[in-house]
Structures are given as structure tokens and as C-alpha cells.
């Protein structure tokens, strides 16, 4: 079975750099980029949505990427 992929986006205008996502993500998808959280590599995302649900600032969205099995 092919691994599901996700698009992870940080809306930096709303990010308050609390670092919850950076420390909670089991796959270390996020890193701090100066003042804001940023996505290191969304290929590692397993779609657990912990970051999205625990981001108090509505700054993170995780959406599944439609993948074509023949790809």
C-alpha cells in the first residue's frame, strides 16, 4: 500500500511562535524559522493532525494530497 501524503501549511501571519507544533509533531515536520514555525518537510507527515488540533492560533492546516496510484 502506498503511503498517504499530506500538505502541511503554516499561516505565518497568525503564528505566535509558541512552538507547540515543533515539539508535539511525532515526525518533526516543523522547525522554527526565525520568529515563526515553518514546515521542514511535509513528506514526513503521517496525518495525525495533532499539530492542527493543538495549534491555538488557527495557523496550521493539514490536508491529504490526492495521489494517483499509477504515479
Amino acid at each position: 500500500m502506498k503511503k498517504k501524503k499530506f500538505k502541511v501549511v503554516v499561516k505565518q501571519e497568525w503564528c505566535k511562535s509558541c512552538e507547540i507544533c515543533v515539539q508535539i509533531c511525532p515526525k518533526k515536520v516543523f522547525v522554527m524559522d526565525h520568529f515563526y514555525s515553518s514546515v521542514r518537510d511535509s513528506n514526513d507527515c503521517i496525518g495525525c493532525l495533532q499539530c492542527e488540533k493543538l495549534c491555538p492560533d488557527f495557523a496550521i492546516t493539514v490536508t491529504p494530497i490526492e495521489t494517483n496510484d499509477n504515479e
Binding site: 497568525w14 505566535k16 509558541c18 507547540i20 491555538p56 492560533d57 488557527f58
Partner: peptide, 9 residues
């Protein structure tokens, strides 16, 4: 938005 709450609230 963004809301008034502190970072980490």
C-alpha cells in the same frame, strides 16, 4: 484574526 490570546495559550 489573529486572536488576542497570548502565544501558547
Amino acid at each position: 484574526m489573529p486572536h488576542i490570546w497570548c502565544d501558547g495559550c
